[in-house]
């Protein structure tokens, strides 16, 4: 099935409900999303908004309550487990906040894992692994175990591992969260090149504002729903993201527009900054 679908990832009316009754949590709520080859999408949002749940479902690691996820045109939600395993191995690459390298394996062995699971010819596999390590500037770390690697190196190894089976889709959850700013930047550049030079679709879920620099699109997730980031503004009083609608409390002050999450926040802000009544 070497037919390439322009929509590498398509999510339709996806919902995930944890628990029932009183403890019911709607972690993902009617989410729609389309991502094509070579695109980097950043999904941001507060803690508990359902970001991880969303990419766990997109990565065929969790079944949704309702809705569909198409990878390369194939609805993965209805697939039997065997094929979901195959899909994870061949079509999806994962990058984690915690790196998740196998502690007793060396760098090159960690990168080799997906190839080993596919049972690929040894010398071919070796070439692939060595090539990737060279490309990621990890050649001289090939025989190190993870404990001897820096955080940035670990994340580079995990990105190499995500890419080794040449998947179409890379799913990254907080890829920079455990890294200092310089290492975070390295990883960002790498993810960008993964999308732009290798043509992968990269979905990143993160709190990290810096990632906005490399994203083609930024989406905002809150209470399980996705909103375009362009329609959001930060409340200058409490810092919350506010969806800009006609009903939103707002303020025009010295040629600038301010949006508030509530009337209370607006009046607090006005009092604090001693803004004359004529402005509102």
């Amino acid at each position: 099935m070497e037919f390439t679908h322009p929509e590498v990832l398509k999510i339709e009316k996806l919902s995930k409900v944890y628990g029932v009754g009183n403890i019911e949590v709607r972690a993902v709520d009617h989410v729609d999303l389309i991502a094509s080859g070579g695109e980097i999408i950043l999904i941001m949002g507060p803690s508990g908004s359902g970001k991880t749940t969303l990419i766990t479902i997109a990565g065929a690691l969790l079944k949704p309550t309702s809705g569909s996820v198409y990878i390369d045109g194939q609805n993965i939600v209805t697939l039997p487990e065997r094929e979901r395993i195959w899909l994870r191995r061949n079509k999806i690459g994962f990058v984690f906040q915690a790196f998740n390298l196998l502690s007793n394996l060396t760098t090159s062995e960690n990168v080799f894992i997906p190839l080993g699971l596919s049972g690929i010819n040894r010398s071919l596999a070796r070439k692939k692994v060595d090539g990737l390590l060279e490309e990621f500037d990890l050649g001289n770390r090939a025989s190190f175990t993870p404990e001897k690697l820096s955080g940035g190196e670990k994340q580079r190894v995990s990105i190499a591992r995500a890419l080794v089976n040449d998947p179409k889709l890379i799913l990254a959850d907080e890829p920079t969260a455990n890294l200092d700013s310089q290492r975070g930047r390295e990883v960002m550049r790498l993810l960008r090149s993964v999308a732009k030079n290798m043509g992968k679709t990269v979905i990143i879920v993160s709190h990290d504002q810096r990632l906005m620099e490399i994203a083609d699109r930024v989406l905002w997730m809150e209470d399980g729903r996705i909103k375009a980031f362009e329609n959001l503004e930060a409340d200058p009083n409490c810092g919350a993201s506010v969806e800009v609608r006609s009903s939103t409390p707002k303020l025009d002050y010295r040629g600038k527009k301010y949006f508030f999450c509530s009337k209370d926040c607006k009046s607090e802000y006005v009092q604090k900054n001693k803004i004359p009544a004529s402005y509102f």
Binding site: R82, R88, R89
Partner: peptide, 11 residues
Amino acid sequence: EFGVLKALGAS
């Protein structure tokens, strides 16, 4: 780590 292997597509 076994969970990671499963995620990476180990049967």
